[in-house]
Computed example of a mutant assay.
Amino acid sequence: MKNNIRALPAIQLIDVCKSYGFAENKVDALKNVNLEIKKGEFLALCGPSGSGKSSLLNVLSGIDQPDAGITLFLNKSLNELHENQLSAVRSRHLGFIFQFFNLIPVLSAFDNVYYPLILNGHFPRKTAQELAWHYLDSVGIRALGDRKPGQLSGGQQQRVAIARALANQPDVVVADEPTGNLDMATGDAILDLLLRINQDTGTTFIISTHSTQLKDRARRVIEIEDGELVSDSIR
């Protein structure tokens, strides 16, 4: 039984469609998408602007509901959940990394990682403190924990954002252009870090990117164009 549970996919999309707007302004963002993402995968989602990358990330993470089709997350359907239930799934099982970091500027690096753990209510304060320090250490910036985002470089801010995403110990991390706001050398260092975390923890990573660096090094690459999956390669 344990082996069967472990073999279940992290995420599965079945005939998923999503559109925005109405009448002549309607845009079909996703068209009958079928996708299975295994636990522990490191997946790069690639495609031009407007191809449907962000829509796909939003649907598979429960931010948006599809117009048709089924979204399964850890073998549970998200389609019938209310927003408060979806929010609970995201806060407990998903971590998010953004291109522009989205750190709170008046809080220290430590507090940017610590306070979401308290607000989510999944950990007591002492455990949350220990987790915040542990993950700041794991991304190499424990010594900068008392600094505010404005006192950190772009790469250091992204490391704080990664620590924040990981501290809740999610099953899946969704990243939207995590190296898009960084220079090439810093982006390479961040990619090295994400790959190491994936290997060390088995956390599933789904990363939307334009970066050829990430595309070249991801273990699975999916190409999307005009809302349809056009290529799926595993290395």
Rank of each mutant, 00 (worst) to 15 (best):
F100P: 03
H82C: 06
V106S: 08
F110K: 10
E130G: 10
R125N: 06
A132K: 08
S87E: 09
I97C: 03
F123I: 03
D67N: 08
I104G: 04
E83P: 02
V106R: 11
L72W: 09
H82P: 01
N120R: 09
P116W: 02
N112E: 10
F98D: 12
L117C: 10
A132H: 14
L107V: 11
I70L: 13
L81N: 01
N75H: 14
P124R: 01
F73K: 06
N112F: 05
A88T: 05
E80L: 04
R92I: 00
F110V: 02
T127G: 00
Y114L: 13
F100V: 07
L107I: 00
Q129L: 03
N84Y: 09
I70T: 11
P66I: 03
L78D: 12
A68M: 13
D67T: 14
K126N: 15
Q99R: 01
Q129K: 11
E80S: 08
S108N: 09
L117F: 06
G69L: 10
K126P: 08
A132P: 05
L74N: 12
A128V: 15
G121L: 07
S91D: 07
N75D: 10
D64L: 03
F110Y: 15
F100I: 01
L94C: 07
L94G: 02
N79G: 12
I70Q: 10
S87I: 07
L131Y: 04
T127F: 05
Y115C: 15
A88Q: 02
A68L: 06
H122K: 05
D67P: 14
T127V: 15
D67V: 04
I118L: 14
N102Q: 04
L117D: 06
F96W: 02
E80C: 05
S108H: 09
R125Q: 05
I118P: 00
V89C: 13
Y114V: 02
Y115T: 08
A68E: 13
F98N: 08
F110M: 03
L78R: 04
N79P: 08
L86G: 09
R92A: 04
A88N: 11
L72Y: 15
